[in-house]
Write a protein that binds this DNA or RNA. Structure first.
Lengths: 235, 235
DNA sequence: ATGTGTGAATCGGTTCACAGCC
DNA sequence: GGCTGTGAACCGATTCACACAT
């Protein structure tokens, strides 16, 4: 860690914030928003840690990457911290997103209002099926995936959401990238790759359940003896 | 999420699988299923790594936690590996899940057919609002959250999905645990805690977008940051 | 010759513990 | 006294590199 600037040559790049910390910042923001509502003006790392479900030292270290925004002996100013974190996360303005794939999952995501409420309005829906084009879901018209370049330009969209079947995911990702999208959230159960410099995150709902299933399995079947009432095939 | 030792003396961790490995197993399974379809009979760690989007050494190490299922100089037998991994993950039978909260998100998840297709049929929907009780979504009747104990017993459900508003999440989690659920997937934008020995995973869609927003922000807004000069120091 | 299985090295991240400031 | 900010210790996970099996 190069906390203090040395006389040696150093990259002028902006502070590097560990990825794990970045992933927690939104949780802190959410927590602070709740606190701001109830007029709490300052908060200690200990209390924030408790509310955010992490360790207090973690909170302090995480916040220290943003700068020294706390006051020793006092804590952090809620409003100020919120402002700094929102700015850092780029939450000072909306980010229109484009959802590709209007099958079950895409429809579900389009109908789910939670994106818009939290600063990520769904700007457009695209699908490869001409029969779906022209229809609308949740008030947003479905357009053809070939129009992606226009749509991206039109809405200044930088973030794309992939909700297509697995087989189409990589192709759609490529088209999104070509159209100018540089951040992708992939819900399709497939590995997609993007060029260097782009961001890619994935959420696979079934995988989450399978992970739970692993531990559940171990809990209910301590020694491969008791089987849950079901098909029970065992080799 | 620690495996409890059986009655024997402390078993020296012969079977402990790192959490990070567990999280990748479902991806391997998915990949292998695709390979099995196209009649590939054996696969090398290198090829599997490529398809699963990870490093080859990682694949070998991960698989070695399950046992020595590969053949040196040859690779892994796809079918056999698939069988072993499915068994380990508890995917040899279905796991009925219960979704709590029938707002936008819950409706979206209930309508999304992907859970059932992949071994996690939605056994029941519950909500606290009496006006919603009795209605159905995606063919599944909505029942009152007070009935959770009955519903859990009835369906032998071990996994619960929380899709309520943030404010209700902890209460619902507590009720699920009391009703006998021991694995929870939380979609509500709130921190929930469960007793030791239970599993809890969270998926926050807005948080995923906010993480993307962070990197997007840095990409679009070049430096705009003060210089790191030796005179500055901190504070 | 090929590709697994695994100790050893490495890396990133978490937690500890305390110096420094209010 | 109270609480932040951060080096240092620690811990888990990833990657390397090579012995070993086929």
């Amino acid at each position: 860690m190069e906390g203090r600037a040395a006389r040696s040559v150093k990259k002028p790049a902006a502070r590097h914030i560990p990825e794990a910390t970045v992933a927690r910042l939104p949780v802190y923001v959410r927590t602070l928003l709740g606190l701001a509502d109830e007029k709490t003006s300052t908060i200690s790392s200990e209390r924030l840690a408790e509310l955010a479900g992490v360790n207090a030292a973690q909170v302090r270290k995480d916040l220290s990457y943003l700068g020294s925004y706390g006051t020793r002996g006092v804590g952090y100013d809620v409003e100020y911290l919120l402002f700094q974190m929102s700015r850092e996360l780029g939450l000072t303005h909306d980010w229109p997103v484009i959802i590709a794939g209007v099958g079950n999952l895409g429809r579900a995501l389009a109908n789910y209002g939670g994106f818009g409420e939290r600063g990520f309005p769904v700007a457009a829906l695209v699908d490869a099926d001409p029969k779906k084009v022209g229809k609308a879901i949740g008030g947003i018209e479905i357009r053809h995936v070939d129009d992606l370049p226009d749509i991206v330009a039109e809405h200044h969209a930088a973030i794309g959401i992939i909700a297509t079947p697995a087989a189409a995911a990589q192709d759609v990702a490529d088209r999104m990238v070509a159209a100018g999208v540089s951040s992708i959230l992939n819900f399709a159960p497939a590995i997609v790759t993007v060029p260097d410099g782009m961001s890619l995150r994935k959420v696979d709902l079934a995988v989450e359940l399978q992970i739970l299933s692993f531990y559940q399995q171990r809990r209910t079947e301590p020694d491969a003896d008791r089987t849950v009432a079901s098909a029970g095939g065992e080799g």
